[in-house]
């Protein structure tokens, strides 16, 4: 789920950037430092929408760097347990399949795929129902439910399930959805 949030950060700026464009420099650095990062609390910081306030700088002794407290708003994306997501399948193997929802990787184990879907190997590995009406393969769009998350420094991994009502493939052309 996306959310809009106000965050604070202490930015260190080298004295060579001081001058009439100090603010621009700070904002550019903030974007570079923050956008695309990932934390367990907020998930992915996708984009900064507004810089609310830049506080008074404080000279760091010894280095000459100046620390500015910066208050900014940003759009963040974080998957939550219990959330329903639509994701694109990126890889299928006999253990299950991987899907991607934005920057988030989701693994759906074969235990969490409906029992009537079986793995079919080949150059386009897939999971297919016995009557062949539903097929999950690379690039299929699936609706899944997040049941667990793990946050890395730069990535979020999720475990998902499609073994429930109203979950599963949503776009497959052959599917009778």
């Amino acid at each position: 789920m996306f959310f809009h949030i106000t965050l604070e950060r202490n930015m260190q700026l080298h004295p060579r950037h001081f001058g009439p464009h100090l603010r621009e420099k700070l904002v550019a650095k903030l974007m570079k430092d923050v956008e695309g990062t990932c934390s367990g609390r907020h998930g992915f910081v996708v984009a900064i929408t507004n810089v609310e306030d830049i506080g008074k700088g404080l000279i760091r002794e010894g280095t000459g760097f100046v620390t500015f407290p910066v208050k900014y708003q940003c759009v963040a994306f974080r998957p939550f347990k219990g959330e329903i997501l639509e994701a694109v399948v990126t890889m299928v193997n006999k253990m299950g399949f991987f899907a991607e929802a934005g920057p988030v990787q989701i693994f759906v184990s074969n235990h969490l795929i409906p029992d009537d879907m079986e793995f079919q190997s080949g150059d386009m590995p897939n999971y297919t129902t016995s009557d062949g009406s539903v097929k999950i393969q690379k690039d299929s769009e699936v609706r899944l439910k997040i049941i667990g998350t793990r946050v890395d420094a730069t990535e979020i991994f999720c475990i998902g399930t499609i073994k429930d009502d109203f979950l599963g493939v949503i776009n497959d052309p052959g599917a009778a959805s």
């Binding site: 789920m1 959310f3 809009h4 106000t6 907020h42 963040a76 939550f80 347990k81």
Partner: peptide, 14 residues
């Protein structure tokens, strides 16, 4: 689901 609402007060879901 409640947990996400316990996120910082200034967070607004989109």
């Amino acid at each position: 689901l409640k947990l996400e609402l316990e996120l910082p007060k200034n967070a607004r879901l989109l």
